[in-house]
């Protein structure tokens, strides 16, 4: 059973479908083990798991960086990825980084508009190496959004930021998601981040889904919301961390 391409959508109204995806490296134990996952259009899914649980492999496969060798993946053509590191080209000014690979007219205006959205229009002409960590990650978000993706992948995008900047960025992502309405897959270690942002939390363990739970707390959410505690201990439990 080997399908590698993004064929036409067999399930209307579904952004991303992963079916029986198995991936192993050098005949070792499977990193992804017959994984099934569906993400609806506009749905925000948080993917949790320990290092080595297969989170990154799943994301890389969805991004098209790793091949599909066993199983099938269907996803929209327009996808964007934001990585833990900003991965901006240091030799291009911020706005040039945003429009990288896009050559149609009026792209500069769209870049400026997106930079405005992420609150970075004043650094449009700056060199990336002069940006702070938070600013660089905003620029990376802008670069992802300017392509109007139907599916946005965020690979621990705030892990390298300080705690205060992280809170601001989480708020920003929540706002941008509401505005753009794309499906989002957020890979994270942070249970609170998942609870704050996602419609659904998926915990991965040894290449399989261990827990798949909807988060129905009304938005905008706060850490003091009553539903938080129960879900937090459920997810921490699934991650093998037992609250005392």
């Amino acid at each position: 059973m080997t399908h590698t391409h993004s064929h036409s959508d067999p399930h209307p109204g579904t952004a991303v479908i992963v079916e029986q995806l198995t991936r192993r490296f050098n005949n070792g134990p499977p990193v992804l083990d017959g994984l099934d996952l569906a993400i609806a259009p506009g749905e925000f899914v948080a993917l949790l798991g320990h290092s080595g649980s297969g989170k990154s492999t799943l994301l890389r496969t969805l991004a098209g960086l790793d091949p599909v060798t066993d199983g099938a993946v269907t996803r929209p053509r327009e996808v964007s990825v934001v990585f833990q590191e900003h991965r901006l080209l240091p030799w291009k000014r911020v706005w040039k980084n945003i429009v990288l690979g896009q050559e149609d007219k009026g792209i500069r205006q769209r870049a400026e508009a997106v930079l405005e959205e992420v609150g970075l229009s004043h650094r449009s002409n700056a060199w990336p190496l002069t940006l702070s960590g938070g600013e660089a990650q905003r620029a990376a978000l802008a670069r992802a959004l300017v392509r109007e993706p139907a599916f946005l992948m965020l690979d621990e995008p705030f892990a390298a930021l300080d705690a205060l900047t992280r809170l601001k960025m989480q708020q920003l992502v929540a706002d941008l998601w509401k505005k753009h309405g794309c499906a989002v897959l957020l890979v994270t270690h942070d249970v609170d981040e998942a609870l704050l942002l996602a419609d659904r939390a998926v915990v991965l363990e040894r290449g399989r889904i261990r827990v798949d739970v909807p988060i129905t707390i009304p938005r905008p959410r706060r850490h003091s919301d009553p539903g938080f505690e129960g879900l937090r201990s459920l997810l921490l439990d699934a991650l093998g961390v037992h609250a005392a």
């Binding site: 991004a63 098209g64 964007s80 991965r87 080209l89 030799w91 291009k92 990288l100 690979g101 670069r143």
Partner: peptide, 26 residues
Amino acid sequence: KLVEMASTLGLSRWQTIRDVFLPGAL
């Protein structure tokens, strides 16, 4: 990682050489 990023942005081989490899090796 920059090359990987270029590939997720859908840059062609030639665009990757022009925008990533050449300026990076300058």
